[in-house]
């Protein structure tokens, strides 16, 4: 490296100015530079064009319904009553249930992979978790409906029996009835959330695992040499080191959970009602709403659906951007390297 750097002379006055250094301009460099820059820009253009398209399509809906679009719970195009209040609540509820289930599982799975699993199991388990991410979401939907739901509703009933006094666990039926109304517990936010959590786990786990592996060996050894157990090492070194990525990975998974469509669509029974009763049958999410009504929508209904999509797009964009910022900040690794 023989690049000559000018001394940091004051730029103002006496005709002194930093020299202009010409970067390398080999033809191969220029071609490659142009190609990767083009691809990078292309991604930005795609995202921006989606946003602009959705925003443009939303204009008629916002003109017609105004802010009422955000406060109206019903989705009745025939009666000209359209709003996403209930749908947004349902979307957030499903995503939150998914994250409450996925977060501890993903965290412990990642910790097991990096700190506990024998080498052979480790490689094998990484592949399986990656495979979890590759399973189509409709498969998780079918799995939830036919395999999980018949058992999960027993847990739902148990929760409502014992914790029913907490509003979110309440179900509008008698949980202690001799012949209990099973259909009151199916197709709920809870079941949909369980299915979505299966798709959120691999994403959150992958981010956490990658960062747990980077926890400095010197600090790990310091904790071990002080007489720390593996759990002690994890708590003292690994988790504090990865704090930002744990938050960021969880938010990335939340972004995934907010937009999940196919599985949710076949699990839930549509209900346009603002309610916190997650164990009870019936809810609606934004993406499921769009998927269910897209096929037979009129022009104005289509605009309303695209507006719902626009809102979802903005929410996931914000969640993912915050996640990216949190992860990038933590990766700067302030204070981890001496």
């Amino acid at each position: 490296m023989t690049t000559v750097l000018t001394p940091p002379a004051p730029v103002s006055g006496s005709g002194k100015a930093p020299r202009q250094l010409r970067p390398s301009r080999e033809p191969s460099d220029r071609i490659f530079h142009g190609t990767v820059t083009g691809i990078g820009l292309f991604v930005l253009v795609i995202i921006a064009s989606i946003g602009i398209f959705l925003g443009y399509q939303s204009i008629p809906t916002f003109r017609h319904y105004g802010l009422g679009f955000f406060t109206q719970t019903q989705w009745l195009p025939e009666l000209d009553k359209i709003g996403i209040a209930a749908v947004l609540i349902g979307t957030v509820e499903v995503a939150l249930v998914a994250m409450v289930v996925a977060f501890p599982l993903a965290l412990m799975l990642a910790l097991f992979i990096t700190d506990y699993a024998p080498k052979v199991v480790k490689g094998w388990l990484i592949s399986v978790v990656d495979l979890m991410a590759a399973v189509p979401s409709i498969i998780y939907g079918l799995w939830a409906v036919f395999l999980l739901q018949p058992h999960a509703i027993k847990l739902s009933r148990w929760l409502s029996q014992h914790l029913g006094w907490i509003p979110i666990f309440h179900v509008n039926t008698d949980p202690n009835a001799a012949v209990w109304q099973q259909s009151r517990y199916t197709s709920s936010v809870f079941i949909a959330g369980l299915a979505v959590s299966m798709m959120a786990i691999p994403l959150a786990c992958a981010v956490m695992r990658a960062v747990f592996d980077q926890a400095p060996l010197g600090e790990r050894e310091a904790a071990m040499a002080l007489g720390g157990t593996r759990l002690g090492v994890a708590r003292t070194v690994v988790l504090p080191f990865a704090k930002g990525s744990i938050i960021g990975g969880t938010m990335l998974a939340l972004g995934r959970a907010l937009g999940e469509t196919a599985a949710v669509l076949i699990i839930i029974s549509p209900a346009y009602e603002i309610k916190a009763r997650i164990l009870e049958a019936g809810t609606q999410t934004t993406s499921a709403l769009i998927a269910a009504n897209f096929g037979n929508a009129t022009k104005s209904q289509l605009s309303a659906l695209l507006t719902a999509g626009f809102v979802l797009f903005l929410i996931t964009l914000i969640v993912n951007s915050v996640a990216a910022v949190v992860i990038r900040r933590s990766r700067s690794g302030a204070g981890t390297e001496i």
């Binding site: 600090e219 310091a222 904790a223």
Partner: peptide
């Protein structure tokens, strides 16, 4: 250890 390794957090 050879390299100082206090817990930075």
């Amino acid at each position: 250890f050879q390299k100082p390794n206090p817990f930075p957090a």
